[in-house]
Structures are given as C-alpha cells and as structure tokens.
C-alpha cells in the first residue's frame, strides 16, 4: 500500500509538479490516516493486493482481497469523507455485500430486485449537534412543536 501510494505520488510529481503531488497526498488522505488508527491500519496492512470492487454514489470505495487475507476480513470500505464517517455512511445497496450477507454487488442486486421507490441515502448524523438531534413533536426545542390542546379555540374574525 505504501508502495502504491509512493508510486502514485511520484507519478503525480513527475507529471504535474510538486503541487499536484501534494494534492495526491491529500487525496490519499495520508495525513488523516496517520491520526486515525482505523484508516492507517487499513492502508498499511490490507491495501496491498486489494481489488477495488466498486465506488458508490457517496464516494466510498469498496475493496476486496481474497488472497493472503484473513477470511472474514476480506471486504472493507474506505469512506469518502475521511473526517466524518461512521457505519451508517454505507448505503443499503453496499451494506449487504460489505457485511458478507450476500456476494452480490449493487449492480447485480439491481438486476435481481424489482424497481422500488425510495429517497437518497444519507449518513446518519444524529446526536452530532443541535440540528441533528431529534425532538418529538411535543418537545419545546422542536421548532415545529405541535399544539397539543384537544380543542380549537374560537377565533373572532
């Protein structure tokens, strides 16, 4: 993995100059990875020989490594947003594949499943701030707090 990283950095430097190389570094998220143990571990020990299976619409990359890897750890995801990620960033179509529930990738699943309606998948950010904390309809902090009185008072018009 380190080799791959270096290779791509040097290639970028050769082609487009050192600024591009820095961009490449940033893109690879090496700095962040140094600080985040998960990402670092992924990059160091497992990336080598991994096959990129697919990329989803949020930008997460899905890798598989069948050879020289521990069975049960042969599929993983590299999140698009290195700073803010959690397990809910994986959309449902990749979730099955990622957790070894199925071997089908989304394209194959799409063929198998009938057409359905749904909204676009989003990362679950609850609890991370006031905007993301859910308040019930009766809560004072809910901007759309419902009026729970069981009668409608008369409005003189």
């Amino acid at each position: 993995m380190v080799l791959a990283f270096l290779r791509s950095t040097i290639k970028a430097a050769k082609d487009n100059g050192w600024k591009a190389a820095l961009e490449e570094v940033k893109k690879q998220g090496l700095v962040t990875s140094l600080l985040d143990g998960n990402l670092l571990a992924t990059k160091l020990w497992t990336d080598d020989g991994a096959r990129l299976v697919g990329v989803d619409k949020l930008g997460n990359k899905y890798f598989e490594k069948k050879v020289n890897s521990q069975f049960g750890r042969h599929r993983w995801v590299e999140y698009a947003d290195k700073k803010q990620y959690n397990a809910s960033a994986v959309p449902p179509e990749w979730h099955g594949w990622l957790h070894y529930i199925t071997d089908h990738t989304p394209e194959q699943l799409e063929d198998l499943k009938p057409a359905r309606y749904g909204i676009e998948h989003k990362l679950n950010r609850s609890g991370e701030g006031d905007a993301y904390i859910y308040h019930s309809k009766g809560h004072a902090l809910n901007p759309k707090q419902r009026n729970w009185t069981r009668y409608e008072p008369w409005q003189p018009t």
Partner: peptide
C-alpha cells in the same frame, strides 16, 4: 365540542375587535 370553543373572557374594544 372540540371546535370553536370559547376559552377566555373577551371584551369588544371600540375598534370592534
């Protein structure tokens, strides 16, 4: 019984409201 209920005393002011 749940609609158009009078729930507080009101006085009509000179403006008519």
């Amino acid at each position: 019984l749940k609609r158009q209920r009078l729930n507080e005393p009101m006085i009509r002011r000179p403006g008519g409201y």
